[in-house]
Design a binder for these strands. Structure first.
Lengths: 150, 150
DNA sequence: GCACAATTGTTGCCTTGACAACTGTTGCTG
DNA sequence: CAGCAACAGTTGTCAAGGCAACAATTGTGC
């Protein structure tokens, strides 16, 4: 609101994006602990990916999460230690691992899905359907612009 | 692009925001090093704030950067060590410090401002003036929604 | 003026994530 | 099939940042 910025958001964009990211992470973790789950944001995302996409290789998961392999190894260590995830040797390639949810991991996944949706719903409160799709399209364009210049 | 998402962005919002944030940071740091400056993103933001807002207390700066005091102390250590910033005892309150740019800090500030603007300009390429203000307004609303629920 | 709570900046400890070096495996090429 | 480059995952090392404990200072209520 508050009408017109002089030209546009010169640097404000960066600040807005950063703060929204932090609030999103904080909101999701807070929602998780409120439900009694002791999960970090990244663990949540990993479980979600594994739940929706099915078992996959560690490298694939790293790429989906935009994470480097080293960080992923430690993430998997924690998830495996909590028995949410299993590292199964890939039968076709002895270098690779199949990462799959355990039974309790799958159960957990079903129960935490609602947390993320609640937060997303809250974030988009008071925005019409049209505005939501427009927001997504504008953000996608921004991401494309930034990735191009790598 | 690609038209219509079925309902909206259920979880995609989080992923988009996160990736844009990372790309923004990476682009700005890359732009800085390309110009020969060895600055991290946070150091850049701190210098920018000090340049535009003028000298201020360490606590104020921390609040503006949405940073905790511990992180700020170390950030100031680095900036002071590079002689971009000075910690001056506040005359009115012996607990507090006035953080001010040194001469070379002010000179640096003028030279790095363009870097951030270049990146912001690149990020908003191919977006009309109208779309830019709309993006800002939509993002502001999202941030408000998320902060309310703290 | 004196205890006591609040505030300012600093420090220690910990977690997260990035990057490079490394091991083991695969696939390609001669 | 020998050699070698590419790839998968792990580990070490590092920087950034969060959080709690702390010392110094301020302000408040008695």
């Amino acid at each position: 609101m508050s009408g017109k910025a002089s030209t546009l958001a010169p640097f404000q964009l960066c600040s807005l994006i950063g703060r929204i990211r932090n609030e999103l992470h904080a909101n999701i973790e807070q929602e998780l602990t409120r439900q009694g789950f002791e999960l970090g944001f990244t663990q949540y995302v990993a479980l979600k990916k594994l739940g929706t996409e099915g078992p996959m290789t560690a490298g694939e998961l790293a790429r989906l999460l935009h994470h480097n392999p080293g960080a992923l190894t430690r993430l998997l260590d924690k998830l495996e230690q909590q028995d949410y995830v299993r590292r199964v040797p890939d039968p076709g390639d002895r270098r690779a691992l199949r990462i799959e949810l355990t039974a309790s991991g799958r159960a957990l996944w079903k129960r935490i899905n609602a947390c993320g949706e609640r937060v997303a719903e809250r974030a988009l409160e008071r925005s019409t359907e049209k505005e939501r799709t427009q927001l997504q399209s504008l953000l996608s364009r921004v991401l494309d612009n930034l990735r191009q210049s790598d």
